[in-house]
């Protein structure tokens, strides 16, 4: 998550104090991502160093300092908003690694392992859905954050469903020797 760019976005509609930026950041993300004030000031100092924000400096480093976005900050913000988020390499996913590992451990019922993770995911989704049920209709930012989290968890639950189906199929059918690959493909996983 780019706190730098989120702060630039908050400054794009007018100058603000550091404390105000923290409050607005937390409100914008539906209070799901807390941000400490030290992180706000450190980020603002770096943005100032890079010429993306400026402050009047009259209050030194104190909380009374007002920050505003510069034209190059505006340019940087617009570039970031449209820049594709890097999704080319799959992240290392511990859940996937656990299921792959379970396949190798003698005496482990992989379907049981799958179900333990499925239940945990659905319980988490129940909590997020409660949040949506209670509040999200009144708070667009929160609704968007909650939906993103629900879709993320749902994609993992779907992967578990698909894994479970593949395991069933593999246990019902005799293993087929795959033809020798012409070349070995590698999927590089980001660390």
């Amino acid at each position: 998550m780019s706190v730098r760019h989120a702060l630039l976005a908050l400054l794009s509609d007018g100058p603000k104090y550091g404390l105000q930026l923290r409050q607005e950041f937390e409100a914008t993300t539906g209070d799901v991502w807390p941000l400490n004030i030290g992180q706000v000031y450190t980020t603002l100092q770096r943005l100032e160093r890079d010429g993306f924000v400026e402050s009047d400096g009259s209050a030194g480093e104190g909380p009374q300092n007002v920050f505003r976005i510069t034209p190059s900050g505006d340019e940087e913000l617009n570039r970031w908003l449209r820049a594709p988020t890097d999704m080319t390499t799959p992240p290392r996913n511990e859940l996937v690694i656990k299921i792959l590992s379970a396949l190798r451990v003698p005496g482990v019922d992989v379907q049981d392992v799958v179900q333990a993770h499925r239940r945990y995911l659905v319980e988490l989704m129940q909590q997020w859905t409660r949040l949506k049920e209670d509040e999200a209709d009144y708070d667009l930012s929160l609704a968007l954050v909650v939906d993103a989290e629900l879709f993320r968890l749902d994609s993992l639950a779907r992967w578990l469903d698909s894994a479970s189906g593949r395991l069933d199929r593999a246990s019902a059918e005799p293993p087929v020797k795959s033809p020798a690959p012409l070349f070995r493909r590698r999927v590089v996983v980001r660390r």
Partner: peptide, 28 residues
């Protein structure tokens, strides 16, 4: 799972048998 997560309790069924269920979720 997105629909199921609206429920107070989710019961998991496999091959005709109940294999698991969620416990009451803590407060959001």
């Amino acid at each position: 799972a997105r629909l199921g997560s609206w429920a107070d309790r989710v019961v998991f069924i496999r091959d005709g048998q109940v294999v698991d269920q969620t416990v009451a979720p803590p407060s959001p």
